[in-house]
Amino acid sequence: MKQLFTARMSKPAVPVALILLFAGFLALSYNIPFIAPFAIAVAGFISLYILFGKQGIIYTFSKPQKPVSTYFLGLVGAYIFAGIGIFITKELIGNTPNSNPVAEKMTLLGLIKTIPMLLGEELITIVLLLIIVNLLGGTRKALVIGVVVSTLVFGFLHLPTYDWNFAQVIFIIAAARIPFTLASLRSNSLYTGLFIHITYDWIVFILVIISHH
């Protein structure tokens, strides 16, 4: 995946890719029948292709390096970051986080349906990061900017889900996102961040399902 930081990228395709990703997000947000769960993932794959060609998809989904250690570090890190975010949001800011309506209605079948949606969330974040880093020359500074911007965008995309609670999406949702991205970067593959993201969300979802029975 890191190969794409300095790979040849189609700059005219950048606005098209951003429009596609936004259209995918809207399709999911408005729950368009049959399309919604897959919309962002499909938009992400198309965006990678028009930006970098076939290599964009191959490099993004390459075989992970150090997958086991990176997976556990990322998963633990996500819960630590989220925990710190909850403390900041509730205790320091005095803000009450909102519950996730998706989690409240989750079923075992619904868990399976989250996989393409979580893949879409990973793709929209990583594609944004790749665009930013590539446009800024692939430097370490560019990478930091790319991580920060893509993380904040990821958080802001969750604003409608959490009733426009800015503190919650910045300090909890976006904070938990950082280890997903860092894990993908460390392993040089989106697969690692995706598996961590699925595990992170599913643990919460399963606990909610159990509590309702």
Rank of each mutant, 00 (worst) to 15 (best):
I58S: 15
P67C: 00
A7R: 07
A175E: 00
F195Q: 05
Y49A: 04
I173D: 11
N31V: 09
F52M: 01
M9D: 00
M106Q: 07
E121V: 06
P67T: 05
S150F: 12
I57S: 04
I19W: 08
G85T: 08
S187I: 07
G74W: 10
A167F: 13
M1T: 04
A183N: 10
A7H: 09
P33Q: 02
F5H: 15
A41Q: 03
W202L: 00
T60H: 09
P33E: 03
G120R: 02
G77H: 03
F52L: 02
G77T: 02
V147E: 06
L182F: 01
S150Q: 02
I46G: 06
L135Q: 14
V102Y: 15
P64H: 03
I80W: 06
F45R: 02
T199G: 02
A36K: 07
S47K: 00
F22Y: 14
F154L: 01
H213I: 15
A13S: 03
I86V: 15
E91R: 11
V153L: 10
H212D: 14
N188L: 09
D201Q: 08
E121D: 11
A41R: 10
I35P: 05
Y200I: 06
L18C: 09
I57R: 00
V76T: 06
I206D: 04
I196H: 00
E91F: 14
I32M: 11
I93T: 06
I196V: 09
K141Y: 13
